[in-house]
């Protein structure tokens, strides 16, 4: 695996994403969403900053997640359809390098988008008198874990787009796992309540399969385990890395023998 192949691919994907109209429209939409949360926060009166923080963080996460799912699902499929991958794969670029370059390039574009929206949001919060010293750590940890969710969901989106070879089915599978991932704890609880048998095994299996997003909710972790905050965020990061690596490995296994 050569970094000298992955980097130009990532850079090219990054620039290409930023120049695509869809991406720019999504950024504009994100900015509008943040500005509207600014207006909505007025309804919160004495809880204004709390409402503004929650709405803003949710907006950043949801918008970036949908952007990443949309971009990732279409990324390789579009290149197959437009045949632009011919000129890459007929060079000494391995299929793994090709996937990783595209994956990291798209992630970098989404990361830049998240940073832009976070700066805008934090600026609005500061303007409203937000105490960055008291709440800054949890706020930026929340943005960080939101990006971890994006890293993980993007890897799933990439895998499904290659495995299913249809953007619609890839989109459905990815969104299904994303939603299921928010109910991982409930799945475990259900499995625990069931008597031994096929159903229990099925629920347990699904529990291990879906992404465990409860590891990546910084605000909940802070509220419940503030003394172990750093360790739990680190564990969440490790989980993200392992889960994403597994999804990318599956994507590679589907892609390596693909014919064009």
């Amino acid at each position: 695996m050569k970094l000298s192949n992955i980097l130009p691919l990532a850079r090219y994907t990054f620039v290409g994403s930023f120049r695509s109209k869809i991406f720019l429209v999504l950024i504009l939409f994100g900015v509008l969403l943040l500005l509207s949360s600014f207006l909505l926060s007025i309804l919160g009166q004495e809880q204004e900053i709390r409402v503004l923080t929650d709405l803003g963080l949710a907006s950043i996460e949801i918008l970036a997640l949908f952007t990443s799912i949309f971009l990732m699902v279409n990324l390789i499929l579009e290149q197959i359809e437009q045949r632009t991958l011919y000129l890459v794969l007929t060079r000494s670029v391995s299929r793994a390098e090709y996937l990783l370059g595209n994956y990291f390039g798209t992630l970098a574009a989404i990361f830049a988008c998240v940073v832009l929206m976070t700066l805008l949001h934090a600026g609005i919060l500061l303007f409203k008198g937000w105490d960055i010293r008291a709440e800054g750590l949890v706020y930026f940890a929340s943005v960080f874990t939101s990006f971890e969710k994006i890293v993980l969901v993007s890897a799933l989106g990439l895998f499904f787009s290659i495995f299913s070879t249809s953007a619609v089915s890839a989109l459905v599978f990815t969104i299904f796992l994303w939603i299921s991932g928010h109910f991982a704890v409930e799945l475990k609880f259900l499995a625990g309540r069931l008597e031994d048998g096929a159903l229990k095994t099925l629920f347990k299996g699904i529990y291990y399969l879906v992404p465990h997003f409860h590891y990546l909710n910084a605000r909940d972790i802070w509220i419940s385990y503030s003394s172990q905050f750093g360790r739990m965020i680190a564990e969440g990061t490790l989980y993200t890395a392992l889960y994403s690596a597994a999804a990318l490995l599956l994507a590679h296994l589907s892609f390596r023998k693909k014919e064009f």
């Binding site: 130009p8 290409g16 120049r19 045949r83 632009t84 000129l87 890459v88």
Partner: peptide, 25 residues
Amino acid sequence: FLPEVPYFPKNFSVEEVLYFYGRLS
């Protein structure tokens, strides 16, 4: 390799396309 139909992403300039393939080569 010269394909039958030239396939290039639309959002890049001629020189950018060449830099990209040059780096990949």
